[in-house]
């Protein structure tokens, strides 16, 4: 069943008008799938992650629907969403360091959290400990304060807590960007392990680092200026991208082994359009080397081959 998002629009209310941060996004995430959500700052990836679990005060659900396992998620209704949070949809926050109350022992904090959901800590304690063993955290952490854990340990602890009720959908927003490369690898792998064991059914892994997404995601969705540019299997996105933005983005990444002296890489000139008053037609038009007249019309997302969606007239 998984997640189905249909023409989702989420706008930010600001003093200067509506910022169309998410403007008609359609995609699905299947059971057991890890969807990597990639794109640059301001592309709407964080907004998408937030809208699926908790909108902040300035966000408005302007249109479209979200379905999880066949039931509609009332994402615009903060109160009704409460029933789904943590049990159906869960999130691993970006800053695990500050996600935990520093004055409560971790075990106590988990108990509070479960109680607020009408659950008994005792009934779940066994499962909690099994999962701690799995991520190689000593059980003693439950009796310690968050301060006593290292960054990587805290991140793993938060991962265990947010998936304790086996949510159907897990959102991981830039969870590794504050971590060192070696810790990053361990955390990313733990996430895959959770999926493999069925602790979570589907995962949306949000990051600005495509190389990292490629390591763990089954599917990658590239966003640009509030819209989906391209979505395909991870190896297809990386090795055979069809959207010019994806192509340019991938070719701008220096890889270990690529040297300036041997092969000079190039960035993408220009910057993304303002989402306060986005241009009509293709939003990448101004920076696109392939742009032509047709691009003044908005390109629909076309399935160019099975499970490969591209929103570009030239694809």
């Amino acid at each position: 069943m998984g997640l189905r998002v249909n023409d989702l629009k989420v706008y930010y209310q600001t003093l200067r008008g509506e910022v169309k941060a998410l403007d008609g996004v359609t995609f699905a995430v299947g059971d057991g799938e890890i969807l990597g959500l990639a794109g640059e700052s301001g592309c709407g990836k964080t907004t998408l992650g937030k809208s699926l679990i908790r909108m902040d005060g300035r966000m408005r659900h302007t249109g479209g629907t979200v379905e999880l396992d066949g039931a509609e998620l009332p994402i615009g209704d903060d109160r009704r969403m409460n029933r789904f949070r943590f049990s159906e949809v869960s999130i691993i926050p970006q800053y695990a360091m500050s996600a935990m109350n520093p004055t409560r022992k971790i075990g106590k904090m988990v108990a509070d959290l479960l109680e607020s959901r009408g659950l008994r800590y005792r009934n779940l304690a066994g499962e909690l400990e099994r999962r701690l063993d799995l991520v190689e955290l000593p059980r003693e952490v439950l009796g310690s304060y968050p301060l006593e854990l290292s960054g990587g340990m805290k991140q793993r602890m938060v991962m265990v807590i947010s998936t304790l009720l086996d949510p159907s959908l897990l959102i991981a927003d830039e969870i590794t960007s504050a971590l060192d490369v070696s810790t990053q690898k361990a955390v990313a792998r733990t996430l895959v392990g959770f999926r493999d064991r069925g602790f979570v059914r589907s995962v949306i892994f949000i990051t600005h680092d495509i190389s990292l997404t490629y390591q763990i995601a089954d599917t990658i969705m590239v966003m640009y200026a509030g819209k989906v540019a391209e979505k395909a299997r991870a190896d297809v996105i990386v090795n055979a991208p069809r959207h010019p933005y994806t192509k340019l983005l991938i070719s701008s990444l220096p890889e270990v082994g690529v040297r300036y002296a041997d092969r000079k890489l190039a960035g993408i000139p220009g910057s993304p359009p303002s989402l306060l008053d986005p241009p009509t037609g293709c939003r990448f038009r101004d920076r696109c080397p392939l742009a032509h007249d047709k691009c003044a019309e908005e390109p629909p997302a076309v399935e160019v081959e099975p499970d490969h969606f591209v929103a570009c007239w030239k694809a």
Binding site: H208, I210, L248, P254, Y260, L265, A266, G267, I268
Partner: peptide, 14 residues
């Protein structure tokens, strides 16, 4: 910096 502008700054440095 974003990936698309990062490489330009690196090139500049080089």
């Amino acid at each position: 910096l974003d990936a698309s502008t990062r490489i330009d700054v690196l090139n500049l440095l080089a």
